[in-house]
Amino acid sequence: MLAIEESQQLTLENLPALTLFTGNDQGQFEVMKAQVLEQIGYDPADLNFSHFDMKEVSYKDVELELVSLPFFADEKIVILDHFLDITTAKKRYLSDDELKSFEEYLENPSPTSKLVIFAEGKLDSKRRLVKILKRDAKIFEALEPKEQEIRAYFQKLSQKQGLVFDNKAFDHLLIKSGFQFSEIQKNLLFLESYKTDGHITEEDIVQAIPKTLQDNIFDLTQLILAKKIDQARDLVRDLTLQGEDEIKLIAIMLGQFRLYTQVKILQESGQTESQMVSSLGHYLGRNPNPYQIKFALRDTRGLSLNFLQDSIRYLIQADYQIKTGVYEKNYLFERALLQIASQSN
């Protein structure tokens, strides 16, 4: 069960004395955090709630609040937000002495204070403080979900929202959202407001969900491969008018062509799709989405490894020349696109 599903059972009445919300799936973590605060009835104007942003607050203020008595109830809720000191994040906000003081508090907590900690990221298990939290806290960890977990969660959520998807429309939603938790959640809200009858087609997803920069770069790549130069120029002009910089566009295209190249190499070595996911996961340090591999295989059909390598070289050269001020950015980017188009089949 996903952490966000498990945490849906929390209320102010059953909230544990010590609760920790953490995890490296940023999208799920943020949705879970907002959901939990709503479930426990958090109100900044309510004196029985105390909220501290650990990036900004003085620890003395936190410590004083933890041990002070509640005003109008038997218990009060103390919320420590962005507690990055217990994660593997390099940034630190508390001193060693302050962390030691917090450890001492956890060993002997106030019976009238319930403590809620939000710490986005991966817990630093080497820290004694984290070991204490793992021992004593109820922990909800937003781990990066598997594809089937994302499907199951959002299919349930869609049903609750009264949405019914045609054929492959739900798959289209997941792909369009990049299988990112927060993006899927946001796009479901778009669809809910767009189609009042709740019946969602693939065309609805195209019309209702705004194109991302990644979508536009994918379209640009396809136009270049099809040698539709005028349309590619129009798209680049639209993107730059929207404030996108050529260096950023090149970086995204490079990522796309690098994935194409990696997939092509693995395919020529005889690997299957599932083996490619594992191999790229080992190389990248994280498992790529299987759909990325599936579509990369489809898009590289008919493209040679030499062409992909040349395309990467053209983009890197353009990036270097832009950064060293050889010529105007728009000229160098357009030249790289023309070089790629001239080499495509």
Rank of each mutant, 00 (worst) to 15 (best):
residue 107 E to Y: 15
residue 80 L to M: 14
residue 134 K to H: 04
residue 65 E to A: 15
residue 107 E to P: 05
residue 34 A to S: 14
residue 59 Y to H: 14
residue 96 D to A: 09
residue 108 N to I: 04
residue 75 E to R: 06
residue 145 P to A: 00
residue 114 K to P: 01
residue 66 L to E: 14
residue 78 V to Y: 04
residue 100 K to V: 07
residue 144 E to A: 02
residue 33 K to H: 05
residue 144 E to M: 00
residue 66 L to A: 09
residue 61 D to E: 13
residue 142 A to E: 01
residue 55 K to I: 08
residue 44 P to T: 15
residue 131 K to G: 01
residue 101 S to G: 12
residue 130 V to H: 02
residue 74 D to L: 14
residue 145 P to S: 01
residue 116 V to N: 10
residue 133 L to A: 07
residue 75 E to T: 10
residue 101 S to T: 11
residue 89 A to G: 08
residue 91 K to R: 13
residue 144 E to W: 00
residue 122 K to E: 12
residue 66 L to R: 12
residue 136 D to S: 05
residue 110 S to P: 08
residue 88 T to A: 07
residue 82 H to V: 15
residue 135 R to K: 13
residue 135 R to A: 05
residue 102 F to M: 08
residue 148 Q to T: 08
residue 90 K to H: 00
residue 80 L to Q: 09
residue 142 A to T: 00
residue 123 L to T: 02
residue 142 A to R: 00
residue 105 Y to S: 13
residue 47 L to W: 12
residue 150 I to V: 11
residue 74 D to C: 12
residue 83 F to I: 11
residue 52 F to A: 10
residue 42 Y to G: 03
residue 129 L to S: 02
residue 65 E to I: 08
residue 119 A to C: 06
residue 138 K to S: 06
residue 93 Y to T: 15
residue 103 E to W: 11
residue 123 L to K: 05
residue 119 A to G: 04
residue 77 I to Q: 03
residue 125 S to I: 02
residue 82 H to E: 15
residue 69 L to M: 11
residue 120 E to N: 00
residue 78 V to L: 06
residue 94 L to M: 15
residue 48 N to H: 12
residue 67 V to D: 15
residue 73 A to W: 03
residue 121 G to Y: 02
residue 126 K to P: 02
